[in-house]
Simulated assay, not measured.
Amino acid sequence: MIALPSHLLDHPKQLMRKGELTRAAILDVALELSSRDGLEGLTIGVLAEKMKMSKSGVFAHFGSREDLQIEVVRLYHQRFEQEVFYPSLAEARGLPRLESMFTRWVKLVTVEIALGCIYISGAVEYDDRPGEIRDQLVAMVQAWRTALHRCIQQAIDTGEVSRDIDIGQLVYELYGLILSLHHDARFLKIPGSVDRAQAGFNRLIASYRTQPKPSKQPAVIVTPTAARAAI
C-alpha cells in the first residue's frame, strides 16, 4: 500500500493526492489480474490481498465490483491508445500510418501473450451478457475500428489504395490477423506467429494497393514505304 510521510497527511491536498495514488495503484493491479484471469475473475478479495488492504479499503475507492471492472476496461483502453494509436499519428496519413498502427498493435499483442488482451478476453466473457461492462467494451472496440476505417479512407484519399475497395472488409481482415496471432501465439504457442501476422499484413496491403497504370506505348505509324520494306 502506498504510504506518505506522516507530516504531509494533515494537508487536505496531500490526503487527496494519496487517495489518487492508491486508486491508481489498485487499478494497475486490477488490470494485471483481469488480463490474466479475465474481468469476471477479478474479485475484491484477491485484489485486497494483492494490495495488502482490507476489502472495505478497496471498496472505498470504487462503488462496486462492476464499477471497478469498468474502470479497468477504461484504463486498458487508455493505455491501448497511448501505445498504439497516438504514436501512429506521427506518421504520414495513409499507408504509413496504417502500417504503424498494425505494427504497434502486433507489438502490444506480443507483450500481452504472457497475460492476455482485455478486448479479446472481454469479447469472450461478455459477448452474450448485456450490461454496462459489455457496453463499455463494445464502445472502445468500435472506437478503434473507426480509427482503422478512417486511416484506410485516408489511404484511399492519398491514392495509395484503390477507391473501389470495401473498407469494412479490410478492417475485418486486419482483425482476423490479430485474432489468429493471439490464438497461435498464446494458446498454441506456435513459434514465428508474429512473423506470420506481419507477412499476412504485407500481402493483404499489397492486394489492396493502387496498381500503377500501364504506360502507353507511342503509336507506330506504318508508311507504305515501311510496309513494303517489311515484306
Results as ranks from 00 to 15, higher is better:
residue 105 W to V: 00
residue 106 V to L: 09
residue 106 V to N: 02
residue 106 V to T: 11
residue 106 V to Q: 06
residue 107 K to A: 14
residue 107 K to V: 07
residue 108 L to R: 15
residue 109 V to K: 04
residue 110 T to Q: 12
residue 110 T to S: 05
residue 111 V to F: 12
residue 111 V to N: 11
residue 112 E to Q: 14
residue 112 E to I: 04
residue 113 I to T: 15
residue 113 I to R: 14
residue 115 L to F: 10
residue 116 G to P: 02
residue 116 G to F: 05
residue 116 G to W: 04
residue 116 G to V: 05
residue 116 G to I: 03
residue 117 C to R: 08
residue 117 C to W: 01
residue 119 Y to L: 05
residue 120 I to H: 09
residue 120 I to G: 05
residue 121 S to E: 12
residue 121 S to T: 11
residue 121 S to Q: 12
residue 123 A to E: 01
residue 124 V to Y: 04
residue 124 V to T: 06
residue 125 E to F: 11
residue 125 E to D: 05
residue 126 Y to M: 03
residue 126 Y to H: 07
residue 127 D to L: 01
residue 127 D to P: 00
residue 130 P to T: 05
residue 130 P to G: 03
residue 131 G to R: 08
residue 131 G to K: 10
residue 132 E to D: 07
residue 133 I to G: 00
residue 133 I to H: 04
residue 134 R to K: 14
residue 135 D to A: 15
residue 135 D to M: 10
residue 135 D to C: 07
residue 138 V to T: 14
residue 140 M to D: 03
residue 140 M to F: 01
residue 142 Q to M: 12
residue 142 Q to T: 15
residue 142 Q to G: 04
residue 143 A to R: 10
residue 147 A to M: 06
residue 147 A to R: 15
residue 149 H to L: 02
residue 150 R to H: 11
residue 154 Q to C: 05
residue 155 A to W: 03
residue 156 I to D: 09
residue 156 I to A: 06
residue 157 D to R: 11
residue 158 T to R: 12
residue 159 G to K: 12
residue 159 G to Y: 11
residue 161 V to P: 01
residue 161 V to A: 01
residue 162 S to D: 07
residue 163 R to L: 08
residue 163 R to W: 05
residue 163 R to K: 13
residue 164 D to S: 13
residue 166 D to Q: 11
residue 166 D to N: 13
residue 167 I to V: 15
residue 167 I to F: 02
residue 167 I to D: 02
residue 167 I to N: 03
residue 167 I to R: 04
residue 168 G to D: 08
residue 168 G to A: 00
residue 169 Q to I: 01
residue 169 Q to S: 09
residue 170 L to Y: 07
residue 171 V to T: 10
residue 172 Y to D: 10
residue 172 Y to N: 08
residue 173 E to Y: 08
residue 174 L to Q: 02
residue 176 G to S: 03
residue 177 L to Q: 09
residue 177 L to H: 05
residue 178 I to C: 11
residue 179 L to V: 14
residue 181 L to K: 01
residue 181 L to N: 03
residue 181 L to F: 11
residue 182 H to G: 00
residue 183 H to V: 09
residue 184 D to G: 03
residue 184 D to E: 15
residue 184 D to C: 09
residue 185 A to L: 05
residue 185 A to F: 07
residue 186 R to K: 15
residue 186 R to P: 03
residue 186 R to M: 15
residue 187 F to V: 14
residue 188 L to P: 00
residue 189 K to F: 00
residue 190 I to T: 14
residue 190 I to F: 09
residue 191 P to S: 03
residue 191 P to W: 02
residue 192 G to P: 00
residue 192 G to Y: 04
residue 192 G to I: 06
residue 193 S to I: 02
residue 193 S to P: 02
residue 194 V to T: 10
residue 195 D to E: 15
residue 195 D to Q: 11
residue 195 D to W: 04
residue 195 D to T: 11
residue 196 R to E: 13
residue 197 A to L: 08
residue 198 Q to M: 12
residue 198 Q to Y: 01
